[in-house]
Amino acid sequence: MDRIMQEKVCSLVLAKILQELSAYYCQPGNRVYSYKRFYESTIRSLFNISYRTYMRDIRKKLPETNSLNLVHDVIEQYMVSRVFQRIDRFHFKRDELYVFSEMRTNDYPPSMWLYGRYYGTQSGAVVVGDLSRADGIILQQEGPLPVGYVYVRLASRQELADFMERQRNLSRTRVRAVEDMVLME
């Protein structure tokens, strides 16, 4: 799911929440005692998730207030987190860019994710190229995925664009270094 699609889904969920809140307020004498109750019924029905999953991944992060910005962030995080899959059940495509994580949920900060191109699998280990952190620091050109990174998802278009931007910056740095060497000679 790309960023635009995510945003559309978030907007739909928020619109539905607003609609239900408005309908409830229209009834004379009705007051909202718990906003979380409203969020729960809407989110669970729209995403078709179990009560257990809802309690574990969403409920504790939802605000008790009617701050829809916060609700938006929680939904967005949930959508990102649930597309991570276990590496051993994942079908990779060679040369595609993937995001690797040690945990499935988004409680794990994105700054700890790793970005890398899938090269193949050797003796059960996933071999990746251009492995880098979210801040652009390249960890290795080619090699096995670090131990512990057992969840994976396809990088979004924006993440690809950011990855390319880092490559461009690297390329510029290389060109500058060569120019400096020529000048020194």
Binding site: D95, L97, R157, L160, M164, S171
Partner: peptide, 12 residues
Amino acid sequence: REELRDFCFNYG
């Protein structure tokens, strides 16, 4: 997205 991926990696 696919075109961006191909460009990105081939340029690299």
